[in-house]
Computed example of a mutant assay.
Amino acid sequence: MSVHKSKKRKTTQEVTADTSKPTAVFKPAKGRQHTVSIALPGSIIANVATPDLKSRLAGQIARACAVFCVDEVVIFDDGQAEVGPPEHDGYTAFRDPNFFLYHVLSYLETPPHLRKALFPMHPDLKTAGALPSLDMPHHLRGDEWCPYREAIAIRQKKNADGTFGTLLDCGLPQHVYLPVVMEEKTRVTVKLPEHAPSSGGEVSCQAVSPDAPREEAGYYWGYSVRQAPSLSSIFTECPHDGGYDMSIGTSERGIPVSSVLADDESHVAPEWNHLLIVFGGVAGLEAALSSDTELLEAGVTDPKELFDRYVNLVPGQGSRTIRTEEAVWAGLTALRPLVDIRNAV
């Protein structure tokens, strides 16, 4: 009979890594002119039963956008959910799921120190405060210094020489001064000195475009949100000059997503400036097309005609359906190499 020697389990383990602070803090490398946008239908909210679950779904979408540095989210109407006036208390998720998703995503993108002033109490946001934090680079703590910040106008200030400016709250212990008169509760992106002042005196700043942190320094600065009344308006109302120069539609009837990364005719070269990835709802992009009169009148019969690439995100999927919130995570993961290669150019 063999004799088994018991080994004494170690009760302590030497930890060499400093786990007191996150190690994945976003570090800008260089200015970035290109952008990544996603589009999805608000009808996915209508497919969820309870208000709490509706908010959680919006939170999942917002988390994916933050993790993968999405610059724009388009909420489009695919005609698969009835739209009407809000309920008597103002709650919109059951009557206008497109607006509800837009509302919650906008709230979550806003830095916490601005939310109270920019978003009055609303039934749509009743449980949004309990959703996981996005913790994006522009969601700065009061003791963190960054040359860019999101701010809100507090009040006007008269200077000794008789000129007027505006005091802003940008999440720092002290207000900052902008030498421009602005209306109270106006959100503005500001540029501060490169380094924090040694004294605790007043800090002056300048107003810049919301794109400046990304274009000038390479920061990921959150996502913008817009609503589109149809599938076609995703493209026709694009905010970029020249539109999206690389569009990818997602469907189980598309080519394998790996094809856009392979060295063949479906390969996507790292030359695009504005990438758009469009996800369908429960009934897919075919349903969105069938509800778009402009596209139908133009003779479009297959949604893949609208895109530069039409891809299947999970070939050989085991489940009969992939939910849109799952497709967003799967799609942004699968297509991340396209962004990494473009970033390196």
Rank of each mutant, 00 (worst) to 15 (best):
F235T: 14
F235M: 11
F235C: 10
T236L: 10
T236Y: 00
E237R: 08
E237F: 02
C238K: 04
C238W: 04
C238I: 07
P239R: 00
D241V: 02
D241E: 12
G243D: 10
Y244T: 04
Y244P: 06
D245E: 01
D245P: 01
M246I: 05
M246Q: 15
S247C: 07
S247E: 03
S247A: 11
T250K: 03
T250N: 05
T250Q: 02
S251R: 06
S251Y: 04
S251L: 04
E252F: 03
R253A: 14
G254D: 02
G254F: 06
G254Y: 01
G254N: 01
G254L: 01
G254W: 04
I255V: 12
I255S: 12
I255K: 14
I255L: 12
P256D: 05
P256N: 10
V257L: 05
V257Q: 11
V257Y: 14
S258H: 07
S258N: 08
S259H: 15
S259R: 15
S259I: 08
V260Q: 04
V260Y: 03
L261D: 07
L261H: 08
A262K: 06
A262R: 06
D264I: 11
D264M: 07
E265R: 14
E265I: 12
E265F: 07
S266P: 00
H267C: 15
H267Y: 07
V268D: 09
A269E: 08
A269G: 03
A269D: 02
P270I: 12
E271H: 07
E271I: 06
W272M: 00
N273D: 13
H274F: 15
H274W: 10
V278A: 06
F279K: 09
G280I: 07
G280R: 07
G280A: 05
G281L: 06
V282K: 10
V282Y: 09
A283F: 09
L285G: 03
L285T: 06
L285D: 07
E286I: 01
E286V: 05
A287L: 09
A287D: 12
L289V: 12
L289I: 11
S290H: 09
S290E: 14
S290N: 09
S291F: 05
S291R: 09
S291W: 01
D292I: 07
T293L: 02
T293C: 01
E294P: 04
L295N: 14
E297A: 11
A298R: 15
A298L: 11
A298Y: 08
A298E: 15
G299I: 02
G299S: 02
V300E: 03
V300H: 12
T301R: 13
T301N: 08
T301S: 12
D302C: 11
D302P: 05
P303N: 08
P303Q: 00
K304P: 00
F307P: 09
F307R: 08
F307Q: 07
D308V: 00
D308L: 00
D308H: 15
R309N: 10
Y310W: 14
V311G: 04
V311N: 05
V311L: 11
N312D: 14
N312G: 02
L313D: 02
V314N: 13
V314F: 10
V314K: 15
V314T: 15
P315S: 09
P315E: 13
G316I: 11
G316E: 11
G316S: 13
